[in-house]
């Protein structure tokens, strides 16, 4: 059926039509809207027919998706983002259509997207977008390896496979380097202080646990079967970490350092990291991991 449609009927052209019709009679506008609705149903057919179509209009509905798209050269195609999408700089100018867990469907549709990348397909609005003909791609890397495979997959979906594969390859190489110890045994045990009050850390199933694991570090609460377990100071003392890692946002690092040195002894190292790099399963994860690696290896060896 799609071959009967002239190619000019892509979403952008439709909107031009609509704006031309503002002065027309209501009945004819209604008819047009009905026709347009019909076209919406056909659009995915058009998209699927040419996956690498340069005219793809993408909603990046998660911060990491945003970063991946720009990193693989698909930034031009991104038409909308959600709150906390803040990298790279160009993203800040994009219109927002809600948060990563709740999409404003009308605002999203106003951008005439052809594709939406979401964290989770079950969030409110995602299925509506799909019903209205937008291709919905779910991307939620929960492990370091999945970050790389997701980059490749998003590349394939958006027609930027080549750049995506190259990026994944480069990241993989950087990742492999982190495994090699920079000068001594690196099996430090780490307490990762996600939050100070209350004290939250990363558990077994968390992304951060995998990040630490991939760097050859031991997460002292890595055997707690919760994503973000609440712990107390005593439990941390009992776990005897060599290093306390603190995401620097909203935290007085010097105060936390004094606090942990009081309880864990003067030998404990307190390292601040950037949570946007460490917690976000996007291409900058390696920057964050390398930074932590660097800080760890600065003239330090760890004993058990």
């Amino acid at each position: 059926m799609s071959q009967h449609l002239p190619e000019v009927f892509d979403a952008r052209n439709c909107s031009v039509l609509v704006s031309c019709m503002h002065g027309a009679k209501l009945s004819s506008v209604m008819t047009l809207i009905q026709k347009l609705k019909y076209l919406w149903v056909l659009l995915p057919g058009l998209c699927l027919a040419s996956p690498a179509w340069a005219g793809e209009r993408i909603l990046a509905l998660a911060p990491h998706a945003c970063e991946i798209l720009y990193a693989i050269g698909a930034g031009e195609d991104v038409v909308g983002a959600v709150s906390y999408c803040d990298y790279p700089q160009a993203v800040l100018a994009l219109p927002r259509v809600g948060s990563y867990e709740r999409i404003n469907v009308e605002a999203a549709l106003a951008l005439e997207p052809t594709m939406a990348i979401v964290m989770d397909e079950s969030i409110p609005g995602a299925s509506k977008l799909r019903d209205l003909g937008v291709k919905v791609v779910a991307s939620y890397p929960r492990r370091v390896d999945e970050v790389l495979t997701e980059i490749c997959r998003i590349g394939a979906e958006t027609g930027h496979q080549k750049q995506a594969d190259a990026l994944a390859e480069a990241l993989q190489q950087r990742l492999d380097k982190l495994k090699a110890p920079p000068g001594g045994p690196q099996q430090a045990s780490v307490f990762y202080e996600i939050w100070a009050e209350p004290l939250l850390t990363a558990g077994k199933s968390s992304f951060i646990d995998d990040v630490l694991h991939r760097m050859g570090l031991r997460n002292v609460f890595g055997d707690v079967a919760l994503e973000a377990p609440r712990v107390n100071v005593e439990a941390v003392i009992a776990a005897r970490p060599d290093v306390v890692v603190i995401p620097s946002e909203n935290r007085d690092v010097a105060e936390r350092q004094a606090f942990w040195q009081k309880w864990l002894g003067q030998d404990v190292r307190v390292i601040a990291v950037n949570p946007d790099l460490m917690h976000r399963p996007g291409p900058r994860l390696l920057d964050g991991m390398e930074d932590l690696y660097q800080q760890l290896s600065q003239g330090q060896t760890f004993e058990h």
């Binding site: 906390y84 948060s99 009050e197 209350p198 946002e249």
Partner: peptide
């Protein structure tokens, strides 16, 4: 809570569930 940054929400929920340690 809808307006808070996501990590703030964790803290807000933790506070609302009661915390005697701090």
């Amino acid at each position: 809570i809808a307006l808070l940054p996501e990590r703030g929400v964790v803290r807000a929920y933790a506070w609302m569930m009661g915390d005697l340690s701090n």
